[in-house]
Design a protein around this nucleic acid. Structure first.
Length: 155
DNA sequence: GCCAACGTTGGC
DNA sequence: GCCAACGTTGGC
């Protein structure tokens, strides 16, 4: 499954933040859902494509293209007792949550969620299903190619 | 801020 | 193992 959509709240980590980071790479921290964690742990491969999605903001949508830049490793925030992602049941010997590194690749035209809903080729996207809240979801190659074409469209 | 939908927890 | 209650997500 080589393509993924990953949600980030831009107030926390925006696509521009990733572009501005060293090596245009950040750790994807804070996933606290087992299904999303399992995608990172069991299925992601270095080099997989990522649609970097902005959620919980004025205009949610795909903000850019990124790629998986590392294998899975323990999410450091689960051990930080002062942080909001602290998990008292996680220990370094038995971590519960994991991160992968994500590298920004390409920023094109912003593709709002409302536009995505109007594109027939995207109607089966996990993101667009009623009640879907998964922060990491698989994307088919057809969906990926459709979205890439929109992102690269000239205004 | 509202609220629908979903995931998790915990009593039984 | 069931399921009600609660907490969270996330668009609007």
């Amino acid at each position: 499954m080589p393509y993924w959509l990953m949600k980030s709240e831009p107030d926390e980590v925006s696509f521009d933040d990733v572009l501005a980071a060293p090596e245009q790479t950040v750790a994807w921290f804070g996933v606290r859902n087992y299904q999303a964690r399992n995608f990172m742990r069991d299925q992601m491969q270095v080099g997989d494509g990522i649609l970097f999605y902005h959620s919980s903001c004025a205009v949610p949508g795909v903000a850019g293209i990124a790629e998986v830049a590392s294998g899975p490793y323990p999410d450091a925030t689960q051990f930080d007792s002062a942080g909001k992602y602290f998990d008292p049941q996680a220990t370094p010997a038995q971590p519960r949550w994991i991160s992968v590194d994500v590298r920004a690749k390409e920023k094109g035209r912003y593709l709002p969620l409302s536009d995505m809903r109007a594109i027939p080729a995207l109607e089966d996207m996990v993101l667009l299903q009623k009640g879907s809240r998964l922060s990491i979801s698989p994307v088919t190659s057809g969906q990926w190619n459709t979205i890439l074409a929109f992102i690269r469209e000239q205004r």
